[in-house]
Design a protein around this nucleic acid. Structure first.
Lengths: 210, 210
DNA sequence: ACGCAAAAGTGCAGTGACTGCAATAATGGG
DNA sequence: CCCATTATTGCAGTCACTGCACTTTTGCGT
């Protein structure tokens, strides 16, 4: 019986196996992609290397790139959302910080994390895909922006607010792509990314004024 | 015999056929996509509807979505590039205007153009793909931005200028996605798009300042 | 007009991503 | 320890896409 000399009493054997397997597959996928380049790697190769059936691979990750990008982006943490809604900086900056923290919070595995950074640095298309996939949560995030917007400026036309939120989202995503790539090429320290974000906002301000 | 009561003496029969065929295929593809939704349409369906072999389809368009998105974005016109380099507005705005004009210059066929607009409005993923594909010219466009940048501020660190240009490009692309979608939903008049762009720039300025 | 070389269109066979379905193998609770 | 639930797998099939070899079309010189 699993009588809990262990540290994770809440999770059963099933869950632990699933996590261990996921890690193993991601690791194998990243290793292969770093060695041969993404599009010289087949799903079958990944499966053979990680001792899993192709069918199960797709059950886990859905697409070939799934194992390279990691699990579908998690919903932002409650507290992070609260920070965003309460923050007093430029809205784009605060949103980018939210994106960055959510992203960082989802990669606890150091080694996989580092490999992913290296892969992104050498395969920009994959990185763009990652950003696109984060954007798949676009609807939810736009709603968040809208909420903060209407809380601050209750006297705003609804349609105008919606357009505004869309624009905030798009600009944040565009800038985030550049920032995250730069950060990935550089130190990769968690704290640094917010510095990069702040610098980017400064630049944008200069960009949109003659 | 095609003895030239025609109007285009410079282009041979070959070229004219190619263009006519391209139009026919694009029209068929758009019709099918609008009716059934993009991912319920197969390449074989398009080919059957436009009386072309699948192999030829891929020779023409490369990917399934190729016929929906139209020919790969053309290089910006010389004069438009000149305008961009000489313009005195905020650099992001000028860049977006360049993108818009280049885009508009490439769609002479009214009907196909209108269908594409409708399709983009109802399939956002496709529209994002379009913007991504425009970005495939990213390297060239970034170089353009860099050129204008160094002409204006010769005393700028090279690495900093490169980062700056990347950011300009990303922000412009992000904003352009929103603007073009809004424009597509609205009037679709060529002149209107620059108004939208200008308004977007104003908004961005407000966005990045508390 | 005619024939020939280059270019374009096509058929075919194959690869690889991805899905639905049905059979099989853990797993965890009673 | 058995059984219902859930996860893993094999299999067959669809679809996007590619390389290669073959046929047709076109442009051109004679």
């Amino acid at each position: 019986m699993p009588t809990s000399t262990s540290d994770a009493p809440a999770t059963g054997l099933r869950e632990r196996n699933r996590i261990r397997r996921t890690r193993r597959v991601e690791h194998a996928a990243l290793t292969l992609a770093l060695e041969h380049g993404v599009d010289h790697v087949t799903v079958d190769m990944i499966c053979e290397a990680s001792d899993i059936s192709p069918r199960t691979y797709f059950n886990y990750f859905g697409t070939k790139e799934g194992a390279l990008l990691g699990q579908p982006a998690p919903d932002p943490d409650e507290s992070l959302v609260g920070d965003f809604l309460a923050a007093h900086g430029p809205i784009v900056e605060d949103l980018m910080v939210l994106m960055a923290r959510t992203f960082l919070a989802s990669s606890p595995d150091r080694e996989v994390f580092a490999m992913r950074r290296r892969l992104f640095a050498q395969e920009p298309e994959l990185h763009a895909l990652q950003v696109t996939r984060v954007a798949h949560k676009r609807q939810a995030t736009v709603a968040l922006v809208l909420r903060r917007l209407t809380e601050r400026c209750p006297d705003l036309d609804a349609a105008a607010a919606r357009d505004h939120a869309q624009l905030v989202m798009s600009v944040a995503m565009g800038a985030f792509l550049v920032v995250s790539l730069k950060w990935a090429e550089g130190s990769g320290e968690h704290s640094d990314i917010e510095t990069y974000i702040h610098a980017a906002i400064d630049q944008i301000r200069r960009i949109v004024t003659p």
